[in-house]
Amino acid sequence: MPTPLPVPIEFELPEGWRAAPPDEVGAPGAAFIALHPQPDHGFTANITIDGEYRPGGATLSEIAHESVERLRQAATSVVVTGRREIGSADAPGFTQTLAVSADIGGVGRHLVQSQVYLSLLDVADPRERAVIRLVLTATASQYPAIVNDFQDFVRTVRPDTSPAT
Rank of each mutant, 00 (worst) to 15 (best):
A74Q: 15
G29P: 00
P37F: 05
V25W: 03
P6W: 00
A102E: 14
I9E: 09
L71K: 11
W17E: 01
Q113N: 14
N148W: 01
E24R: 09
T137S: 14
L98R: 15
L5P: 05
L71V: 07
Q142T: 08
T165P: 14
V131H: 04
F150T: 06
T97Y: 07
F43G: 11
V135H: 02
A145W: 03
G42H: 13
G108D: 12
I33A: 12
G106N: 09
P21N: 08
A138P: 09
V147G: 01
I146M: 07
S77M: 13
F153R: 07
F150R: 05
T161F: 04
Y53A: 07
V68P: 03
V157T: 11
P8H: 08
P2F: 04
A19K: 10
R83D: 12
A102P: 04
T95G: 02
S119Y: 04
L136Q: 05
P14D: 01
P14Y: 00
P39M: 11
P4E: 12
S162Q: 13
D122A: 06
V131G: 06
D90E: 15
R83N: 08
T44C: 11
A27C: 02
Q151Y: 06
E15D: 07
V116N: 08
Q38K: 13
L71C: 03
Q38A: 14
L98S: 03
A140Y: 03
I63M: 13
E52Q: 13
T76P: 02
Y53K: 05
P28W: 02
A75P: 01
F32D: 02
Q115P: 02
D40R: 14
D90W: 07
I9N: 04
A91Y: 05
S119H: 08
M1H: 07
A74L: 14
T165Q: 11
G42M: 14
V147W: 01
P55Q: 13
I63W: 01
I49V: 15
G56V: 10
P6S: 01
V157Y: 11
T95Q: 14
V123Q: 11
S162T: 13
A124W: 00
L134P: 03
H110F: 05
T165I: 07
A145T: 12
S141L: 15
A164H: 09
R127F: 00
T59L: 09
L60M: 10
P126G: 01
P6A: 03
R127A: 12
P144G: 08
G51M: 03
E10F: 00
A99E: 14
G16Q: 06
F153N: 03
R155T: 11
V131I: 13
D23R: 07
E12Y: 00
E62Q: 15
A164G: 01
V68G: 04
S67I: 00
Q151A: 11
Y53R: 09
F94G: 04
Q142R: 15
T161E: 13
S67T: 10
G106I: 08
V154K: 10
L111D: 00
R129W: 01
P2D: 07
Q73M: 12
I86D: 04
A34E: 03
T95F: 00
G51S: 06
A124K: 08
P144W: 10
R133W: 00
S162K: 15
V131S: 05
A34L: 09
V116W: 03
T59Q: 09
R127I: 01
Y143M: 07
S67M: 12
S77K: 12
V107D: 12
Q73I: 06
